[in-house]
């Protein structure tokens, strides 16, 4: 792995059983991601964006090829090692937020830190810091049902960022949000990316998100169609 290459994907295939045959979701992808990237994986529904993110996020395994995340080969990781990698180094942001409804905002953001076994005082400070990054310190006792969609997604970002992961994988993070909230969410993530050098990889087909990313990877029918780096403005 090169110095700042944190994700290395070589000849990645992913097949799913379909009837008596199989459906190929990813078809020979070769990609590398560097630390601090702010990248969009772009393509229509069924192009393989979410599958790619799931494999990079160790939630799924390659059918063929090799995916190395932070020096660890995803296909060879055991369940516990994969869980440890997700717990300590990866953050996730989902389209429908996936907050724990019976928990408060504070408890939702605290959840990854509980899994890491961080002691109470430090945990509290880290949660409050994360909520400050997303501007939600006034809502710590609220439950997800009491928040707007934009606020929920900001809580999800705080939950993903609270442990300061190396990589955040965001699957259609703005799909359920209006334009204003979408811009706000992307700007929040961009500022976190700049402040902590966290690598952000988005699966999206939202033009608002696409307008912010600094690298655009286009997928079509599971194949890499285009990999475009945007020059810094």
């Amino acid at each position: 792995m090169e110095n700042n290459k944190i994700i290395d994907i070589q000849k990645l295939f992913k097949h799913f059983p379909m009837g008596t045959g199989k459906f190929t979701a990813l078809n020979g992808i070769d990609l590398q991601f560097s630390k601090g990237e702010f990248t969009g994986v772009i393509g229509p529904s069924g192009s393989g964006k979410t599958t790619l993110l799931n494999i990079v996020g160790t939630l799924d395994t390659p059918s063929e090829g090799r995916v190395t995340v932070l020096g660890q080969s995803v296909g060879e990781l055991g369940a516990k090692a994969a869980a440890n990698l997700r717990k300590s180094k990866l953050g996730f942001v989902f389209q429908s937020y996936n907050l724990l409804n019976v928990h408060t905002v504070f408890e939702n953001v605290e959840f990854p830190l509980l899994l890491l076994g961080i002691e109470s005082g430090r945990r509290r400070k880290m949660v409050l810091d994360a909520l400050e990054w997303v501007g939600l310190t006034s809502k710590i006792k609220s439950r997800p049902a009491q928040l707007s969609g934009g606020e929920c997604q900001r809580v999800a970002i705080a939950r993903a960022m609270v442990k300061k992961p190396e990589i955040v994988l965001a699957d259609e993070p703005t799909a359920n949000l209006d334009a204003a909230n979408s811009h706000h969410i992307i700007q929040t993530m961009e500022s976190l990316n700049r402040e902590f050098s966290t690598t952000f990889i988005f699966a999206t087909h939202d033009d608002k998100v696409i307008s912010y990313v600094r690298r655009k990877i286009y997928l079509a029918d599971g194949k890499l169609a285009k990999d475009e780096h945007i020059p810094a403005k």
């Binding site: 996020g57 939630l59 369940a79 516990k80 869980a83 440890n84 997700r86 717990k87 300590s88 996730f92 989902f94 429908s96 996936n98 724990l100 409804n101 959840f111 990854p112 899994l115 890491l116 939950r159």
Partner: peptide, 16 residues
């Protein structure tokens, strides 16, 4: 189910 999936994504093993 989503909560289960999210918990796994956040770092829990299925057995946990």
């Amino acid at each position: 189910q989503k909560e289960i999936g999210t918990s796994i994504a956040l770092g829990m093993t299925r057995m946990q």
